[in-house]
Nucleic acid binder design. Sequence first.
DNA 1: TAAAATTTTCAATAATTTTTGAAAGTTTTA
DNA 2: TAAAACTTTCAAAAATTATTGAAAATTTTA
Lengths: 167, 167
Amino acid sequence: MNLEEAKIKYIQTWGSLATSWGINKTMAQVHALLLVSTNPLSAEDIMETLKISRGNVNMNVRALIDWGIVKKEFVVGERKEFFVADKDIWELFKQITKERKKREIEPVLKVLEDLQQIKDNSDEANEFKKVLSDLSTVTTSVNSILENAIKADEHWLLSNFTRILKK
Amino acid sequence: MNLEEAKIKYIQTWGSLATSWGINKTMAQVHALLLVSTNPLSAEDIMETLKISRGNVNMNVRALIDWGIVKKEFVVGERKEFFVADKDIWELFKQITKERKKREIEPVLKVLEDLQQIKDNSDEANEFKKVLSDLSTVTTSVNSILENAIKADEHWLLSNFTRILKK
DNA sequence: TAAAATTTTCAATAATTTTTGAAAGTTTTA
DNA sequence: TAAAACTTTCAAAAATTATTGAAAATTTTA
């Protein structure tokens, strides 16, 4: 396998992992392409390499910029826009975590809390509240871990984890 | 909001969270329904409550059993099968983590390792290998955390995390 | 053993999500 | 200012994923 093949394999692999975690395949592939590219790429470069339409490139690049993991870059003497991905994978991990936490986990925690408030003291209601409370505990716990992974310095995840392993 | 409404709200909320993490909505809803139900439910109970077809119930209940988070149960004097969800949410968390780790993360780690092996010493190849290596580090790290969450006792996640927070 | 009850399968259909591509919009150049 | 270069939008089409429901298979009862 040569370098080009390896890059393609990597782009495909990342795309399929993304799909099973609810991230659009093309978005992941565009990101992967920018990540392994040594120079900034234009919309056309991406279109050609991934064989996708202009509109699709535009939509997905914007989504990546919105997630804070891709930046626009200007190349001297060139009119069009170019894009680059941050090469720091920890930064990537932090950004993705941050976005998903905010968009998906926090709203669920809010609903779980609201549901706890129902005024009903039957055994059935109390059993339900117990389930909700347990769910909140796990969800909060996951949320906290993610929060710290975001807040702390680059290698929080690895360094803290290593410490736990050694205990 | 009364108890019934709260249960429905919870089932819907869980279903939509599941969707954004690549889990089938109905599968999550069936699980949520079993989780808040005080007694075992038959395929028909599920069909009626969630307004879905027999085939759909069958497919999704089997998937849940396959994931190890729902069990068949027999009710005396009844011919048909009934289903229950483990009420221990930590157990649920562990099972889901275990399955996703095995099915999705481990295969990716394998590919990343394979790709590292390309025999090419150009600057470009080395840069690519660096990206792969960083990805492997983060992925391995996430994988290890999940591994420990699975192996250790019920409240590993919470107790260890609390300790880190207090440092 | 055979009829009844129940579960499973899976081709067809429906719903959802993604992608296209051409038109509209914007920015830059001359 | 207007033509060229480029980007964005979005309705329609394509692709993917989920669901139905009726037929086949299996299990239970009598």
